[in-house]
Amino acid sequence: MGKLPIPEPQIMWRVALVDNSKNENPFGEVISMEHHIDDPSNDSTPKNAVETTDLSLWYGSFQALFNVNFKVKQGLVTSLIGPSGCGKSTLLRSVNRINERFGYVRTEGQVHVLGQDIYAPTVDKTQVRSQIGMVFQRPNPLPVTIRKNILFGYHLKNPGRVAASVEDELVEKSLREVLLWDDLKDKLNHSALSLSLEQQQKLCIARLLPVKPKVILMDEPCSALDPEATAAIEDLIWDLRGEYTILIVTHNMAQARRASDECAFMLMGKMVEHGKTEDIFVTPDHQQTADYIEGKFG
């Protein structure tokens, strides 16, 4: 028996393969990496921080997302609106892969964050989650001290001993950024659960900062808060804008209008419309969007 004919890899052969795949760019990954390396500040048009391509998602046999194509521009606040059960939270939760805790979730399509496919086999889920921060509907500080809450993510990424001065600096910087430092600097060792809801939610944002996330996802961050606290959180979101890309799910139309640069409307698991917030609210392209915004259904 002779040797099996193993084809020698040749340049021509690869080119032929590439040609067969038509519109697919085989170097897409590399190109988008360069994209990501580019300094965003010297480019006038914002890049996409999050980009989903034909994203479909099933909970068991129930399909929650249908071929969603969605681009979130870097450094802006983008709000996701739509009636209950339209899939906006599901979409949000597939951007940091936290919905995978249910064994019966199946995803098709792609989600790129800063140019990298976060569903690629080489991707580590904990890396995804630590670099894409999430703020939940109900403030959920951990049942430990304020200080430990802020350092929790940092210690996960830096398991060794960390100098106390570094920790102190991180805590102060993070709390200053969410405007809590003056209120809390004397009770850093109190339980985080002793804070007011507004402070808890701000703390939940502050604890993301030491791990330097690029993208922050917020799932109705104000729905458990009173109007004053809501205004405070909205101000904070506006302050964080630019440095972080923020994607926020909200039920509150007024909030979407006040506190977002771009707005996307979803219905029945499909992305209906996405554009500048003022355009969506003033001159929506779709009748469904107009009806929802006017409150004809919810």
Partner: peptide, 26 residues
């Protein structure tokens, strides 16, 4: 509460880190 686990996971903790640091102590 489930919210504590979610909070941990969203900060990049593995299941075991979540159990050891938050779930078991409580």
């Amino acid at each position: 509460p489930y919210a504590f686990r979610e909070a941990c996971w969203s900060l990049g903790a593995t299941k075991w880190q979540t159990i050891r640091k938050i779930v078991l102590p409580n």
